[in-house]
C-alpha cells in the first residue's frame, strides 16, 4: 500500500496549459499517474496532448471523476486555486507553487480545516508526492525512486526539503530499499500537511516498515513530530536535520528555515528526535546508512 495517493488517484492539473504545468503534468502521466484533466477557464474544450481542459475543477470532477488536484498556478492565484479545488470536490490537493504569501497560506489552511475537513492539502512550495510504481504528482524525478517490493521491508519518506528528498530516495535505491510513498511537505511556514499527518498514515500503512524523516531548522514541526513518534509510533524512524551549522537570524532559502531567538535550532530538533527513539544521522549519507541498518534488523 501507499499513503495519500496510488494508482487509482485521478488528478486534475490546475495550470496544465502553462509551461511548468504542461512539462510536469506530462512527465507525471508518463510515469503512470492518472492525469485526467487540466483547468483553464479561457481554454475549456481544448486539450493538452490529449488531456482535456475544463473551465473549473468542479467541471473536471464532474466529467472525469478526478479526486485529487495538482496546482501549478502562479503565487498570486494560489489562494483562489486552493479554494476552487476544495469547492470542486477533490480530496487531495498538491500545491507546487513557491512564493505564496504567508497570510494567504495561514488563511486557506484554516479555511480548509473549518469548511472542508475532509480535504488534505500538501504544500505550498513542495516537490509533491510519489508512491513509486503507482503515482507521481509534482516535480520529483520518478526514476530516482525504487518501488516497494512485496515480502521485503519498504520505507516511507517525509521531508521538508526538495533536493534532500531526492537524495533520500536515491540513497535508498542504491541500497535496494523500496519506498511506499515519499511526501515532500515543503519548507513554508504553514504547510498544509505536517510531519505528523504523514507519520500517522505511515504507522497505519501495513506495507511501510520504517520511516525516513528529513527536517530543517526553523519552527517546531520536528519537535512536535518527535512527541508523536514517542507516544504514538511503533515503527522505527530515521531522521536528519539540515542546517546544523546555519547562523541564527539568517533565512536559508526556504521561508521557514530560519533560527530565531534560539528556537528552531538543529541541535534542539535532533535532541528531541533522539529522545523519541529516532536514529538521527549527521548528514544525509549517514541517515541512509542508519536506515539500511534499521531495515536489516527488522
Amino acid at each position: 500500500m501507499s499513503i495519500f495517493v496510488d494508482e487509482n488517484t485521478k488528478v486534475v492539473y490546475q495550470g496544465l496549459t502553462g509551461s511548468q504545468g504542461r512539462y510536469y503534468g506530462l512527465l507525471n502521466r508518463d510515469y503512470g499517474t492518472q492525469v485526467v484533466a487540466g483547468t483553464n477557464p479561457k481554454k475549456a474544450g481544448t486539450d493538452v496532448d490529449g488531456i482535456p481542459i475544463f473551465a473549473s475543477v468542479a467541471d473536471a470532477v464532474a466529467e472525469t471523476g478526478a479526486n485529487a488536484s495538482c496546482i501549478f498556478i502562479p503565487a498570486a492565484g494560489v489562494r483562489a486555486a486552493v479554494m476552487e479545488a476544495a469547492e470542486g470536490g477533490v480530496e487531495f490537493i498538491v500545491c507546487i507553487t513557491e512564493g505564496v504569501p504567508a497570510h494567504d497560506e495561514a488563511w486557506f489552511f484554516n479555511k480548509l480545516k473549518r469548511d472542508f475537513p475532509g480535504v488534505q492539502l500538501l504544500g505550498p512550495n513542495c516537490p509533491g508526492i510519489i508512491s513509486p510504481g503507482k503515482a507521481n504528482i509534482g516535480i520529483t524525478a520518478g526514476h530516482i525512486a525504487k518501488a516497494p517490493e512485496e515480502g521485503a521491508h519498504n520505507v516511507g519518506i517525509v521531508s521538508r526539503s526538495g533536493t534532500l528528498t531526492y537524495q533520500a530516495l536515491y540513497e535508498l535505491k542504491l541500497q535496494n530499499i523500496g519506498v511506499t510513498t515519499c511526501v515532500g511537505i515543503g519548507g513554508d511556514p504553514v504547510p498544509g500537511t505536517s510531519f505528523i499527518d504523514c507519520l500517522e498514515r505511515f504507522e497505519a500503512d501495513p506495507d511501510t516498515s520504517a520511516v525516513m524523516m528529513i527536517g530543517e531548522i526553523g519552527g517546531s514541526a520536528e519537535e512536535e513530530a518527535a512527541e508523536f513518534i514517542k507516544t504514538k509510533m511503533t515503527k522505527p524512524v530515521v531522521g536528519y536535520i539540515a542546517g546544523q551549522t546555519a547562523p541564527p537570524g539568517k533565512k536559508m532559502g526556504h521561508a521557514g528555515a530560519i533560527v530565531s531567538g534560539g528556537k528552531g535550532t538543529a541541535a534542539a530538533k535532533m535532541e528531541a528526535m533522539e529522545a523519541a527513539g529516532v536514529k538521527v544521522g549527521a548528514n544525509p549519507t549517514e541517515a541512509g546508512s542508519l536506515m539500511v541498518e534499521v531495515v536489516k534488523s527488522l
Binding site: R160, S161, G162, G187, I214, A242, G243, A246, N283
Partner: peptide, 29 residues
C-alpha cells in the same frame, strides 16, 4: 548547491569536515 535543503546540508558536511563555509547559495533546480 541546488535546493535550499541540500545547500544547508552542504554547509553541515563542510563543517563536519573541519572547514568553514563562506556562504549559503541555492541555485535552484
Amino acid at each position: 548547491a541546488n535546493g535550499a535543503g541540500l545547500a544547508m546540508s552542504t554547509l553541515d558536511v563542510v563543517n563536519q569536515a573541519g572547514g568553514k563555509p563562506a556562504n549559503f547559495l541555492d541555485i535552484g533546480g
